[in-house]
Design a protein around this nucleic acid. Structure first.
Lengths: 241, 241
DNA sequence: TCGCGACATTGTTCTAGCGCAACGACCGGG
DNA sequence: CCCGGTCGTTGCGCTAGAACAATGTCGCGA
């Protein structure tokens, strides 16, 4: 699908691709065309970096296809994955929060396609395009809510519950139905899961093995399929043991 | 000071009190008076609740004096303190993030004074008062940054480092110079610290005792004074042990 | 002034999850 | 087809910090 989409999108940007996205939903055909005029398109492959924490925020982005991983790195080199952003959302919107540098690093969790605009257009977008700001702040609010959930989990839950929660969230947000169950929509390693849950990849590996034996998940290299989501829900709710 | 301020503020709202605050900094005297016309004033005492998580967000608030504690509660009744808000900032601004309920509970960390307005005035404020929205989003951004820091800490740091960090942050944000050192600006229990760092009050107590013996802090009931901030900085940076 | 409730300390025991280590499996490139 | 790198698994010992428990202290209201 990625390739098919790329083939459609790259030769000539198709306005129907972005017309339905929340920040642009209320715009006229003319406005959509205008937006596309200004946009740079970029095809990215897994692992590509869009921008790094601390860099001057000179562009903002719309993800058309794929997933973006938002990452922060501690002084001693440990990564923490703060968030995953699905296709159809804006990111790198430091300007919306009156910042002039990016607060985190953004990289492609899988191959994908992004549009981007210079930040100098931000004020034009927010002034002229009805709904743009509202929808932007709605998704800021949602991301804050998600961070909050993770904060609570890290503060109060056990590793097992946190991992169960992360899998459930990813499956809800990005899941694709397969014959076995629901698969997380992008490649993901044990290391990634550990960086999302604040534990070691060893613990993740052990738990996934155990869950695989129990028939709750199935996983291949970089792929995780959840077969019995409800079992995970129960695990994530069990206070301890 | 609280009482003196209350005496000044309650009989008749003094426009100089809010004219200097960032969200209102660029407004004319007339606009300031208009804002005060619409405002409800409330004196609160320690522990009072402004609103609870999940309630419809029918008002937004400006803290004139005191500190607000932003709290979330897990299904099993555990509290997590997400944030402290100092005087001079807006809070309960769900509307800014296109939410119609409050995402968390807000209570008074100490006696204080708040203004509040019905949420129906939000659009008027943001449309008519230049700088209001910008400053609002700046502080949203700062709070997100702070949550992010805490997320990283919870995910990668040890309890000792997290507690050291929390003390340093509180001292920086709210500290008052005393002859011994810098004191946190509001009453705070071991339990509170534990709810900020995701550990037990026992561990907090033990560590504070140890630090007191080492001359790093001094603490009485509900009061913590940091004598040697730099020692805490070192503790917060020590990878382990 | 006394007594109660909120707050704090400190010892002991126990375990979840980390650190370390070694090996195995799969994947893409030359 | 082979080889090196990335990704995953699993066992073992250890320790940070939780859980449990008991006792001490401060401050406020009657």
């Amino acid at each position: 699908m990625n390739n098919a989409l790329a083939a459609r999108v790259l030769p000539q940007l198709d306005e129907t691709l972005i017309a339905g996205l929340p920040p642009f939903a209320r715009l006229s055909g003319h406005q959509i065309r205008e937006i596309l005029e200004f946009a740079s398109v970029r095809e990215v492959s897994e692992g590509a970096t869009f921008f790094r924490e601390g860099e001057p925020a000179d562009r903002f982005f719309m993800l058309l296809d794929g997933f973006v991983r938002v990452v922060r790195i501690t002084e001693d080199g440990e990564q923490v994955i703060a968030l995953h952003i699905p296709a159809g959302q804006l990111f790198g919107i430091a300007k919306a929060l009156a910042r002039d540098t990016y607060p985190a690093t953004a990289e492609a969790a899988c191959d994908g396609i992004v549009l981007s605009w210079p930040v100098s257009l931000w004020d034009k977008f927010s002034a002229e395009y009805p709904g743009f700001l509202t929808e932007t702040y709605r998704s800021v609010g949602e991301r804050m809510g998600e961070m909050n959930e993770r904060l609570m989990d890290l503060a109060t839950k056990h590793v097992e519950q946190r991992i169960a929660n992360v899998l459930l969230r990813l499956v809800n947000q990005t899941g694709k139905q397969t014959d076995d169950g629901i698969e997380i929509g992008f490649p993901i390693t044990r290391q990634d899961v550990s960086e999302m849950t604040g534990c070691t990849l060893h613990t993740v590996s052990r738990l996934l093995s155990a869950w695989e034996k129990a028939g709750i998940v199935r996983s291949k290299r970089k792929r995780i399929v959840v077969c019995r989501p409800h079992a995970l829900v129960e695990l994530s709710e069990t206070p301890q043991r």
